[in-house]
Design a protein around this nucleic acid. Structure first.
Length: 561
RNA sequence: UGGCCUAUGGUGUAAUUGGCAACACAGCUGGUUUUGGUCCAGUCGUUCUAGGUUCGAGUCCUAGUAGGCCAACCA
């Protein structure tokens, strides 16, 4: 038994260290804290995999906590969608929590701070407060209300809560340090007045706590040991700790915020504003359009939860800037789908082949393996007849030796079938090839064991019997953006980089075994790629999404010329 | 003119905490193959720069350079 030293990421190192210096393993607890103001995307998926992955690794519970402190943006619809996505990824949260569960506690604590002279009601406009805040290089100045009497503060705060004031008239601020080098410590706002109904607390409240006041205290209430967030919150840590100091009791777990770099994926955008723009402007059809980097989009595209988890696992976690090539994500779907997707045949760009020596009206059903890499996958029958479709790209009148496909006078094997030879072809008035006449070798039947069947020919083509072919709508996707980092250009809008050819809808001809596919079924169309049945699919009209193509060495050869 | 963070192959992460720079992807060469897929083998690095500490530095120190972040009644 060789014990291999596992390589840990820097967050795991922090946890390991904490475990050495006093934390008990049983005290470990993590959380995934989305704001329910939109759909989860691939970036969230990484965060989910990180937190829940840590939970699995350490046998620690992970809470799903909705950071719902801004009723102006949040909706139940998003709560539901987020839960569905986390579940789909295959994770189980320990408890489902809401920051709004803690509104009472937060309010009580705020009152405590006021009583201790550590918070006050400011009655200035936001503009006045902004100018007082100073700049990164200049200290701020005190609000004229900074030394308001405790009694007055208490009274005003209560009146705020009671709904006696308009929005924007008063806020509760923590009294910290107006000259701190950290702008966030210059008397941050804890509460603001918002006369808006909340998706859970309805109209119970008209004052709502700010993120900074809420997050650390929520972690504390839930006794989260490690609160991981992205780097842009690094500055918030001082505040997180300050707020915690105000309520912390010795015998409790003191949550620790640590920050990691968010992972950027090439050729896409993830900001909610930008994704919304793609939907609103009609560039994509919906939030779950298969081109979207949302989890629901990836799901519809045919990605498997495991492939996304594997991806998150491989890219790891660190603190430096990064731009992960989307091809790595594509590698992981291929890798997983290669193992689980049944192989089938479908022709997307048909060219008719007629086997002149195959009896008219006759047909036979050939044995076809479902997955050559998986012995247990079994086999199925595919119909063969005189008239077949092959891909247009698989035939050329003349071609050089590198072209392993069909050419006049050349031979090729039809997958699971016979070796055929192209004798002639017919063209339309524009010179386009419309039909190829071939002869087949009846003794070369796949699996027959005959000498002829064992002959090696350079190429093997997929095909479909014309008479038996199933028509289906095939949606072929390409990258949504032509630029690897579309939203980082100062002089150009990300919309300018939208790939006009990101969607192509065609009719494909499939082997009849696909007749009864179900939504979300995934298959490999041999030699083409992986495809997934779209929810738009019906019994009358099957719709497939192309998840990702196969690795294509031939394309590279042709590119090079 | 302030503060915080970061810097390792084309990309993303490691490096037993100071001891021969590793893994995956991509690339390139071959082999296998009834998918130009899969699989197998091989190949591809002056650890941002300059100093310093040390027998020994990717790791520690100093300075520099580059990039990112920091002022919303957002999270």
């Amino acid at each position: 038994m060789s014990e291999e030293r596992e390589s840990l990421n820097f967050l795991e190192h922090i946890i390991e260290e904490d475990l050495q210096t006093g934390y008990k393993k049983a005290q470990l607890r993590f959380r995934f804290p989305p704001e329910p103001n939109g759909y989860l995307h691939i970036g969230h998926a990484s965060s989910i995999c990180l937190n829940f992955g840590l939970g699995l690794r350490y046998g620690a519970p992970v809470n799903l906590r909705f950071d719902d402190t801004n009723p102006a943006k949040e909706e139940q619809e998003f709560v539901d969608a987020i839960k569905r996505d986390v579940e789909w990824l295959g994770y189980h949260w320990d408890t489902e929590r809401y920051a709004s569960d803690y509104f009472d506690q937060l309010y009580d604590w705020a009152v405590l701070l006021i009583k201790e002279g550590k918070a006050y009601i400011d009655s200035q406009s936001s503009e006045e407060m902004a100018t007082q805040k100073g700049t990164p290089t200049e200290a701020g100045s005190a609000s004229p209300f900074r030394n308001r009497a405790v009694e007055e503060n208490l009274e005003l705060f209560e009146s705020m809560k009671a709904g006696k004031f308009e929005e924007g008239t008063h806020v509760l601020r923590a009294k910290i340090d107006m000259s701190s080098s950290n702008m966030l410590m210059r008397d941050p706002i804890m509460y603001r007045i918002l006369h808006k109904a909340h998706h859970r607390t309805n109209t119970d409240w008209c004052i709502y706590p700010m993120y900074d006041w809420t997050h650390g205290e929520s972690d504390y209430i839930e006794q989260v040991s490690h609160s991981f967030c992205t780097l842009e919150f690094a500055m918030h840590r001082d505040l997180y700790d300050w707020f915690l100091d105000q309520v912390y009791e010795e015998n409790k777990m003191r949550p620790k915020q640590r920050e990691f770099a968010r992972r950027n994926l090439s050729h896409t955008v993830v900001s909610k504003r930008k994704l919304a723009k793609l939907v609103e402007s009609g560039v994509v059809s919906s939030w779950d359009d298969p081109r979207m980097p949302t989890i629901s989009g990836l799901r519809r595209r045919g990605y498997t939860p495991q492939s996304i988890r594997n991806f998150a696992d491989t890219i790891g976690i660190a603190k430096r800037e990064n731009l992960i090539d989307v091809s790595l994500l594509e590698f992981h779907v291929r890798d997983h789908l290669n193992k689980i997707a049944p192989r089938v045949m479908g022709v997307l760009n048909p060219l008719k082949v007629v086997l002149t020596n195959y009896p008219e009206g006759e047909e036979e059903w050939l044995e076809a393996e479902n997955n050559p890499g998986d012995e247990n996958a079994g086999s199925r029958k595919v119909p063969f007849s005189r008239e077949l479709y092959i891909e247009q790209e698989d035939f050329k009148e003349e071609a050089n030796r590198k072209f392993f496909r069909l050419k006049l006078g050349g031979e090729v094997r039809l997958k699971n079938g016979y070796i055929i030879k192209a004798d002639s072809c017919t063209k339309d008035t524009n010179g386009n090839i419309t039909e190829v006449q071939c002869t087949y070798d009846p003794k070369s039947k796949s699996g027959s064991g005959s000498e002829e069947s064992l002959r090696k020919v350079k190429g093997t083509l997929h095909w479909v019997s014309v008479k038996h072919a199933l028509e289906a709508e095939i949606r072929i996707y390409d990258r949504l953006f032509t630029d690897e980092s579309p939203d980082t250009h100062k002089d150009k809008d990300f919309i300018d980089f939208v790939n006009p050819e990101s969607l192509e809808v065609i009719t494909g001809y499939l082997e009849p075994s696909l007749k009864n596919v179900q939504i979300e079924d995934r298959v490999q169309f041999q030699r083409l790629g992986y495809f997934c049945v779209d929810p738009d699919s019906t019994a009358e009209k099957i719709v497939f999404n192309k998840t990702v193509g196969l690795r294509d060495t031939w394309a590279k050869i042709t590119e090079k010329g």
